[in-house]
Computed example of a mutant assay.
Amino acid sequence: MSVKTVVPDETFAAPAPAGQLDRATAALRDNGFIVHVVDSATEARELVTGLIPGDESVFTTSSETLRLSGIAADLDESGRFASVRAGAEDPKGDVQAVVRLGATAEYVVGSVHAVTEEGHLVIASASGSQLAPYASGARKVVWVAGAQKVVPDLETALRRVRSYSLPREHRRLQKFGQSSFIGKILIVEREALPERATVVLVREPIGF
């Protein structure tokens, strides 16, 4: 089902206060994630590109956070990294081909739609193409998220996905004559493999 008339709930656009961000950071670390907190998207860009080795394959998921921060361009267009997207043939709408590309990369870089104070991450997707490498396909995963994505609990996180992230994505796609819907939702509660998953929290809002 596509979204046609829902107005985004702009209460989810405001960055979380410092105390809430601190609680989410501590919980994420307790749940097995490496966490970096930075002040700006520029700092996140410098940090993330420093985390990715130039000789390891990297897959960037479709993300406004990565696009707006310049991270996607750095990883896919600079020529300094072994970008899976840059080196692959055009899948021409073949979603399964995109899924296979991402699942075989050593590193996957993307974003999430919500981070809870309990240290859980929520990612929604229409096709699910980014979920396979996020969950287990990639050897390393790096998520970048603005502070506006930090919410108290899982119930609020799912409400944020449906009442803010989805309508914003629908509006973005309308410019291209498309629409959006939620096909699959991934909830990451804990990372079992040491040092596999890194979360970069940005104190300023970026993405949706």
Rank of each mutant, 00 (worst) to 15 (best):
H113D: 14
R67M: 11
S57K: 05
I187A: 05
Y107C: 04
K4M: 12
H113Q: 13
E117C: 15
T5P: 03
G79C: 08
G50Q: 10
E10A: 11
R172Y: 12
A72E: 11
V150K: 03
T49G: 03
I185L: 14
A82S: 15
A197P: 02
E189Y: 03
D76I: 04
E195F: 09
E10Q: 13
S180E: 13
G102L: 02
I34T: 15
S180I: 00
A18N: 06
G183H: 12
R23P: 00
H120C: 13
E10V: 12
V6T: 15
T61Y: 03
T61D: 02
P91H: 09
V115W: 07
L193C: 05
A132S: 11
A135W: 11
D30P: 01
A72Y: 08
L131H: 07
S127M: 05
I182R: 04
A41F: 02
F59M: 07
L193P: 00
E106R: 14
F81M: 00
A97Y: 10
T61P: 00
S180Q: 11
K140P: 00
R85N: 15
T42H: 11
T156D: 14
A114S: 12
V144K: 01
S78Y: 00
L193A: 12
A86G: 14
S111P: 02
V99T: 04
S40L: 10
T25P: 01
V3C: 13
V202T: 07
L158S: 03
V199S: 02
A135M: 12
R85I: 15
R203F: 06
A103P: 02
A18H: 12
A135R: 14
T49M: 11
T116R: 10
A192E: 13
V98G: 02
I52M: 05
I187H: 10
E10W: 13
G110I: 03
R172K: 14
S111A: 14
S78K: 02
S111H: 01
L166I: 08
S40R: 07
L28A: 03
E106K: 13
F81E: 00
Y134M: 14
R168N: 04
K4E: 15
T104R: 14
Y164N: 04
P167L: 09
P15N: 10
A126R: 15
I52E: 00
V122C: 01
V95M: 14
R23T: 09
G110Y: 02
G32P: 05
D76K: 07
V38Y: 02
R171M: 10
V35S: 06
T65K: 01
I182W: 07
V115Y: 06
G102S: 04
D90Y: 09
A132Q: 09
P152T: 14
R100A: 13
G54K: 11
V202W: 04
P17C: 05
P205E: 02
F181T: 10
F12Y: 15
P15M: 08
